[in-house]
């Protein structure tokens, strides 16, 4: 599978369902974590990730091939999430602390997807940052996206994204230091 593009082409052009299954297995968890940086609720993020795959299966949008498949997929997920947030902006948000089920689900997914203990600590520290910082750091440090790809997903210029990464990293570092951690990769 070449980053999902050929799997999607197989599904889109030949109706090969295994193509979409491969995409779901490959990108589901990362997409959920990314969308979680917007909504702050792992279950909603999961539903939105599901919506993203359903959209691929129903509307079958054409990947223009400008960037990687992952960038394109995350952009679709981001757009769906922003629409969701517009519709639900007036609804009361549930605090993570008030819902232990959410926390345990997220933690188990963290262990499965992120694996490294150090990175899990960083990921938890991300939650205390503002959403924009969370998003950009997730894409750069956890999804290993280049600045240009991150900029494409977030619909910002490369320069803006670089600035955002710098500020987000600085804030995260202070946050970790406050909690007694030293993370040299930041």
């Amino acid at each position: 599978m070449d980053n999902g593009a050929s799997s999607y082409r197989r599904f889109r052009e030949n109706g090969d369902e295994s193509g979409l299954i491969e995409i779901i297995r490959e990108y589901r968890d990362g997409l959920i974590f990314y969308l979680n940086t917007f909504v702050g609720n792992i279950h909603i993020a999961e539903e939105l990730a599901e919506d993203t795959f359903v959209l691929l299966g129903t509307k079958k949008p054409r990947d223009k091939g400008k960037g990687s498949f992952k960038t394109w997929l995350y952009t679709i997920g981001r757009n769906l999430t922003l629409n969701y947030l517009k519709k639900h902006s007036k609804k009361t948000e549930i605090s993570l602390d008030d819902c232990p089920e959410l926390i345990s689900d997220e933690e188990s997914l963290e262990e499965a997807y992120i694996k490294e203990e150090r990175k899990i600590t960083v990921h938890r520290a991300l939650k205390k940052l503002k959403p924009e910082y969370r998003q950009v750091l997730w894409l750069v440090y956890f999804e290993d996206m280049k600045i240009s790809q991150t900029a494409a997903v977030m619909k910002k210029s490369v320069h803006n994204t670089e600035t955002l990464v710098y500020r987000a990293r600085k804030t995260l570092k202070s946050q970790l230091e406050m909690e007694g951690f030293v993370y040299e990769e930041l």
Binding site: L20, R25, V54, T58
Partner: peptide
């Protein structure tokens, strides 16, 4: 959280509903 298979089933069920 759903397993991969559950997610896959849900996604294909919803695609089927959409087509119908």
């Amino acid at each position: 959280m759903k397993s991969y298979d559950e997610t896959i089933n849900t996604v294909f069920d919803r695609i089927g509903e959409y087509k119908t």
